[in-house]
Measured scan of single mutants.
Amino acid sequence: DETGKFLVLSLYDYQEKSPREVTMKKGDILTLLNSTNKDWWKVEVNGRQGFVPAAYVKFL
């Protein structure tokens, strides 16, 4: 199980638009929880879990 094993870097600021999403700032290091959807990845940032656009992050 690779859940929570990968870190990704936020390339852009992102403001959550729904309760299922999370806000991140450019340069944030996020824990990747799920990347099965090619468009939206589930991450943990600042103690919160939610989705961010996959195009806004990259693997470290």
Rank of each mutant, 00 (worst) to 15 (best):
K58E: 15
F6A: 12
P53L: 04
V43Q: 00
V43N: 00
L30C: 11
G4P: 13
G47S: 05
L30N: 01
E16N: 06
V43F: 01
V57S: 00
K38Q: 11
K17R: 14
G27V: 01
L60N: 04
A54L: 02
R48M: 09
M24P: 00
R20K: 12
L33T: 04
K5S: 11
T23C: 05
T23I: 04
Y12I: 11
P19N: 10
T3P: 13
F51Q: 02
K26G: 05
G50A: 02
P19T: 10
G47N: 07
W41S: 02
E2S: 14
K38R: 11
N46S: 09
N34V: 09
F59A: 11
V8W: 08
Y14T: 02
F51S: 02
G50E: 01
Y12N: 10
Y56H: 08
Y14S: 02
Q15I: 15
A55W: 08
S10Y: 07
K38E: 11
T23W: 04
L32Y: 02
N34T: 07
G47D: 07
V22Y: 02
N34E: 14
R48Q: 08
V8H: 03
A55V: 10
E16L: 07
Y12E: 11
V45P: 00
E44I: 07
L11N: 04
F59L: 15
K5E: 10
K58I: 15
N37F: 07
S35H: 11
I29Y: 06
W40V: 01
G50F: 04
V22E: 00
L60D: 05
V22Q: 01
R20Q: 13
Y56G: 08
Y12L: 11
K42T: 06
S18K: 07
A55M: 12
E2M: 14
V52P: 01
T31N: 08
K25C: 09
N46C: 08
K42G: 04
K42F: 15
L32S: 01
L11G: 04
I29P: 02
L33N: 01
T3H: 14
E44V: 07
Y14M: 02
Q15N: 14
L30P: 01
V22T: 05
K38D: 11
Q49C: 10
F6I: 15
T3L: 13
V8S: 02
A54N: 02
F6T: 13
D13C: 06
G50D: 00
L7Y: 14
V22N: 02
L7F: 14
V45D: 02
Y14V: 02
G27E: 03
L60Q: 07
D39G: 09
L11M: 10
V43W: 00
L9G: 03
E2N: 14
E21K: 05
E16R: 11
K42E: 14
L9M: 13
L32H: 01
A54Q: 04
Q15C: 11
V45E: 01
D13Q: 03
T31S: 08
T23G: 09
D13T: 05
V45Y: 09
I29V: 12
I29S: 03
V57D: 01
L30A: 08
K26F: 06
R48E: 06
R20M: 13
L7M: 10
R20T: 12
D28F: 05
K25N: 09
K58D: 11
P53D: 03
L30E: 00
G27I: 01
N34H: 07
K58V: 15
G4H: 15
V22F: 09
K42W: 15
T31A: 09
G47E: 05
G50K: 01
F51W: 15
E44Q: 09
I29E: 03
Q49E: 11
Y12D: 08
A55I: 12
S35V: 09
P19W: 13
P19R: 08
K17V: 09
A55R: 14
S35W: 15
T31C: 12
V43E: 00
D39E: 12
L32N: 00
F6R: 15
N46T: 04
E16T: 08
F51H: 04
Q15D: 15
F6E: 10
S18E: 08
W40P: 00
P53N: 03
V8Q: 01
G50N: 01
G50T: 01
L32W: 02
T3S: 13
N46F: 07
Y56M: 14
G50C: 03
W41V: 09
K26C: 08
K58M: 14
V8N: 01
Y56V: 07
V57R: 00
Y12M: 14
D39M: 12
D28H: 05
N46I: 04
S18D: 12
L30T: 01
F6C: 15
K42I: 14
N34D: 15
V57G: 00
E21N: 05
V8G: 09
T36M: 10
V52Q: 00
V43A: 00
W41N: 00
P53E: 03
Y12C: 15
L33K: 04
K5W: 11
Q15S: 12
F59D: 07
A55E: 11
D13K: 02
S35M: 15
P19K: 09
E21A: 06
M24Y: 02
K26W: 04
R48T: 07
D28L: 05
S35L: 08
F6N: 11
N34I: 07
L60E: 07
T36A: 12
S35T: 12
K38Y: 07
R48W: 04
L30Q: 01
E16S: 15
K58Q: 15
K25H: 11
R48S: 06
K25Y: 09
L11A: 06
Q15T: 14
D28P: 01
F6V: 15
Y14W: 11
G47Y: 04
K17I: 07
Y56D: 04
D28G: 03
T23P: 06
Q15F: 14
V57A: 01
P19D: 12
E21T: 09
P19S: 12
V52G: 01
D39P: 01
E16Q: 13
S35E: 06
G27D: 06
L33W: 04
V52F: 02
F6S: 11
K5C: 15
Q49Y: 07
S35G: 11
W40K: 01
Y56P: 00
D13E: 05
V43H: 00
L60P: 05
A55Q: 12
K17A: 12
A55F: 09
W41F: 09
F51T: 02
L32M: 04
K17S: 11
T23Q: 04
P19I: 09
T36H: 11
L11R: 04
K25V: 09
Y56F: 13
Q49K: 10
K58N: 08
